[in-house]
Design a protein around this nucleic acid. Structure first.
Lengths: 208, 208
DNA sequence: GCTGTGGAAGCACGTTCGTGCTAAAAACAA
DNA sequence: TTGTTTTTAGCACGAACGTGCTTCCACAGC
């Protein structure tokens, strides 16, 4: 029998190298040679675990989606564990929404990589399937959150869908601005905007 | 004297070729050779008008910013011409916000190019100055709009700034979703979200 | 008609990329 | 020790990239 290596662990190490390169130098710099250098391997070694560059990128996209979706699911459970309308629930909601923003180093890397892949998926068909999965997963979480925050079941389905899309758009826009214009979009500004959006959600049934 | 051509017009033709390539194939495909082909010229001819690839891209970025800013200024004048609180003003506001979204072919190309350059500016320092100008210009328009829509002058400055950033984030998020997930983010969904956001703006002073 | 200048085109060089393919190295069964 | 198989490393090819430099061409001014 041959030399035995934890193949899955190696793949994750390579994926981590991909993440670091994308976060610091952008997706177009994530070539096989750069990734191999960053991972401390040779090009041939990386290609032993990933048949092609496309497969490496698609796998990395899937990995970052899984990381983000996992964080969101956990935070959503935290929201569901709190009584509706309580201060604790409000804090849990803010925590969930904060998972979208680059508030610390790990979140920033994931947000960077996520944004890069989603935009690349518009052009590269290899990434389209994962982009669709990404959108479904995040929309499901935000949709459930909107349902939780809607006081009555009386709201029209269309209104809830629109509110979910509105929250999703605001979150993606905030994340984008925090990544692209970090001087303007500070953490305080992010929380101010999130607080204002939550107030607008509470005021929604009154305006109905 | 030599053969005389309208140099500025030629530059604009080349920039239009850059726009088309970015919209259809992404920024990384906007190489000198591809741009020259799309414009029906040779590489040397393109380089006669733009000293380097960086200069061409930076100029194209500036061009799309000027186009967008021009549309926004015009639409903002339209809002200011209507009496506050009127139905006509509401329509003018929706028209202004619609200028951000890829609602027709021309708007879609500009939105695509704008997004691509803003994200590229995170990595390429040559584009950083234009990205900053872009942010300033758009933030100024949205800030003025928020001031126009705020009924009293009693609102705290910080609240107005946060509301401007909130509207800006929602618009950018909507634009992003419309570009990346056009099946989900239809034109109707966009207008629903915009309408909901405007309602939340009207309800804001009441919640204060 | 001749000439010089601005516009258009292209060649050549070095670099980087993905990828097919080969060969060494390493670890375990025999 | 020997052999088998996984892992690692590397070479080589064609393609695409930016860019320095040279070459043609058309036309306004003399």
């Amino acid at each position: 029998m041959p030399k035995i290596v934890d193949a899955e662990a190696r793949r994750q190490e390579v994926v981590q190298a991909v993440f670091r390169i994308i976060a610091s130098d952008g997706l177009e710099r994530a070539s096989l040679r750069e990734v191999a250098d960053e991972a401390g391997l040779a090009v041939g070694s990386v290609r032993h675990y990933f048949a092609s560059s496309d497969e490496l990128l698609a796998f990395s996209f899937g990995a970052v989606i899984d990381r983000i979706a996992g964080r969101l699911e956990a935070a959503l459970s935290g929201v569901e564990a709190e009584p509706p309308g309580s201060k604790e629930q409000h804090a849990a909601v803010l925590n969930l929404l904060g998972q979208f923003l680059p508030l610390d180093e790990e979140l920033a890397v994931d947000a960077c990589v996520w944004m890069a892949f989603r935009h690349a998926a518009r052009i590269k068909p290899v990434l389209a399937a994962e982009a669709e999965r990404s959108h479904r997963a995040v929309a499901a979480v935000v949709g459930r959150l909107i349902m939780l925050l809607s006081p009555g079941e009386a709201e029209a389905h269309q209104t809830l869908v629109a509110e979910a899309e509105r929250l999703l758009a605001t979150l993606d826009g905030l994340c984008m601005h925090a990544l692209l214009q970090p001087e303007w979009m500070t953490a305080e500004m992010c929380s101010d905007v999130l607080a204002a959006h939550l107030r607008s959600l509470e005021a929604l049934p009154a305006a109905h």
